[in-house]
Structures are given as C-alpha cells and as structure tokens.
Computed example of a mutant assay.
Amino acid sequence: MRRDVYQAIADPVRREIIDLLSKEALSINEIANEFEISRPAISKHLKILNESGLIEINKKGRERYCKIQAQNLIPAFMWLEQHKKLWEGKIDSFEEYLMKLKKQSTDNE
C-alpha cells in the first residue's frame, strides 16, 4: 500500500526517525535503541515511512539498514512553506490588532 507523505510525517516518532536518518543510515536495531517503545512499534513506523517513500530499507548481511529519501520530503516542505507565509500574515495582522487594542486601552486610562 502506498502511503501519503503527510500521513508519515504526522507522527512525532516518525519525525524523530527522519531526523535520525537525516544524519546517517542506521540499522533497525540502532533506530530502535533510540526510543523507549517496543521494537514491533518501531518496525511499524519504519514500514509507514518506507511505504510513503521517505526511507529505503536495504539488507546488508543479517542487518537491515534504513536510509532517508530526502527528495520525497520536498513536496511537503513546499506545501508547509506556502502555508507558513499565509499564517505569518494572519499572525502579523492579529499582533497589529492586539497592539491597537492595547493603545486604545492605555489612551482611555
């Protein structure tokens, strides 16, 4: 089953895994050792990341290594960047509104 990138990055554990793999390829055991959750739970997270195309899992000897596929994060990054600008504008407008209310409040004292 092909999973959505946004579904994959929605979970904080998967975001932490992505962060770990952004530094270097790691074995599944090395990843599991970084978390206080069960190995099967880590395997489930890795499966979702793999199905979404965010990581690639390769077998080397008896170990399976995970490597990030960072280029597949680009569409999500672009979407977030687009919405970041929208929300920054709304936050700036709200901040201006609050400053106006504060000024009116001090003028009335």
Score class of each variant (00 low, 15 high):
95 E>Q: 09
2 R>F: 09
96 E>N: 15
85 K>N: 04
48 I>W: 02
41 A>H: 13
47 K>E: 08
67 K>D: 06
106 T>Y: 11
2 R>D: 09
3 R>P: 13
30 E>F: 03
24 E>S: 02
46 L>C: 14
12 P>S: 09
109 E>V: 13
86 L>W: 05
27 S>V: 01
33 N>H: 10
39 R>H: 15
70 A>M: 04
14 R>N: 08
97 Y>P: 15
100 K>L: 05
36 E>W: 13
11 D>E: 10
49 L>I: 01
71 Q>P: 00
1 M>P: 02
43 S>Y: 00
87 W>M: 14
44 K>T: 13
22 S>E: 10
99 M>R: 07
41 A>S: 10
84 K>Q: 11
51 E>S: 12
96 E>F: 12
48 I>Q: 03
62 R>Q: 07
70 A>C: 01
99 M>G: 03
43 S>A: 00
18 I>L: 10
93 S>C: 07
62 R>S: 11
37 I>T: 05
76 A>R: 01
102 K>L: 05
102 K>T: 11
32 A>G: 06
10 A>P: 09
78 M>V: 10
44 K>V: 14
14 R>M: 08
6 Y>L: 03
56 E>F: 03
71 Q>Y: 00
34 E>W: 01
15 R>Y: 00
28 I>D: 15
85 K>R: 07
33 N>K: 10
57 I>E: 08
29 N>R: 10
53 G>K: 04
75 P>Q: 15
29 N>K: 06
1 M>R: 07
12 P>D: 02
97 Y>C: 11
86 L>D: 02
62 R>V: 08
61 G>C: 03
3 R>T: 09
30 E>K: 05
30 E>C: 03
18 I>M: 05
36 E>F: 15
30 E>A: 05
16 E>G: 06
43 S>F: 00
43 S>M: 01
55 I>N: 02
103 K>M: 04
1 M>F: 03
54 L>H: 00
55 I>D: 01
31 I>H: 06
49 L>E: 01
26 L>Y: 12
26 L>I: 13
17 I>N: 03
75 P>M: 13
13 V>M: 06
98 L>E: 11
89 G>M: 04
25 A>M: 10
36 E>V: 15
54 L>D: 00
40 P>D: 03
72 N>L: 00
48 I>N: 03
4 D>N: 08
21 L>I: 04
10 A>I: 11
101 L>T: 04
55 I>T: 04
12 P>R: 11
34 E>P: 03
34 E>Y: 02
17 I>T: 06
9 I>A: 07
93 S>R: 15
5 V>Y: 01
37 I>V: 12
6 Y>W: 07
96 E>P: 15
36 E>L: 15
47 K>N: 07
56 E>R: 08
61 G>I: 08
9 I>N: 02
50 N>I: 00
108 N>A: 11
70 A>L: 03
88 E>Q: 04
47 K>T: 09
18 I>W: 00
63 E>R: 13
66 C>G: 06
33 N>P: 12
7 Q>S: 09
91 I>N: 07
74 I>K: 07
26 L>E: 13
11 D>W: 07
88 E>Y: 02
25 A>Q: 12
48 I>R: 02
33 N>L: 13
61 G>Y: 06
78 M>I: 11
66 C>F: 02
14 R>A: 07
9 I>R: 00
97 Y>K: 13
75 P>K: 14
44 K>S: 12
102 K>P: 08
32 A>M: 08
66 C>Y: 04
73 L>S: 14
17 I>Q: 06
24 E>Q: 03
66 C>M: 09
